[in-house]
Amino acid sequence: MSNKINHHLNDAILMAYSAGTLPEAFNLIVASHLSMCDQCRAQAETFDALGGEILDQSDATEIGTHSLDETLSLIESGPVDTIRAPRVADSVLPQPLQDYVGGDLDAIKWKPVGMGVRQAILPTTREATARLLFIPAGAAMPDHGHQGTEMTMVLQGAFQDDDGYFARGDVEIADSDLHHTPVADIHQDCICLAVTDAPLRFDSLIPRIAQRFLRI
């Protein structure tokens, strides 16, 4: 939380996160950003407060006659909570990502995608895809546009594209009209979390063929 974050989540995404209507992969990138950004976390909790007021003011639905008693016996039987794995301190990965990777950076199962770029697809529901990307310092991602929304958050290093300079914690939100070629900063290899709700469209033939095999 020490570095300054310049590119944040927007209200539409924070509200949908609070309402619980986003696909799992998007929830993952939002939770990861909130772990690093107090400003967005406060905003997200404000949307939770709005949800609480809506709940409070909503109409009561009829509940079962024995509902309270059943709940009290449920309480007697004890909590069912699963315990969260302990957080690896000072990790490049915020805790929500550690939960999905099953550990720290060394637990990531990278697969090469060419040009030194590596990726690891994380286990989420299929409405949207979450992947970790490793881009060597100074290298470019293939030029691509998208059919849906793509969100990219930097975890290590930085990248630059037509929209600006993105460093640790920054999120780029790209809609289908943005067409970009992110280039990793020369000083350090770049690790990002990228989430897409539709397959990326690549502009040269070879990446497009590769796309079928790589689930990019």
């Binding site: 609070s18 309402a19 619980g20 696909p23 799992e24 929830n27 993952l28 939002v30 939770a31 990861s32 909130l34 772990s35 976390r41 939770d48 949800g51 609480g52 809506i54 709940l55 957080r87 915020p94 805790q95 929500p96 939960d99 999905y100 989420t124 529901t125």
Partner: peptide, 21 residues
Amino acid sequence: FTIARNRKIDLLRRQRRPEPE
């Protein structure tokens, strides 16, 4: 609301709910 929302995602949407640190 947040407990109910998380339970909804869990049960109705059959997803894990990633939570911030």
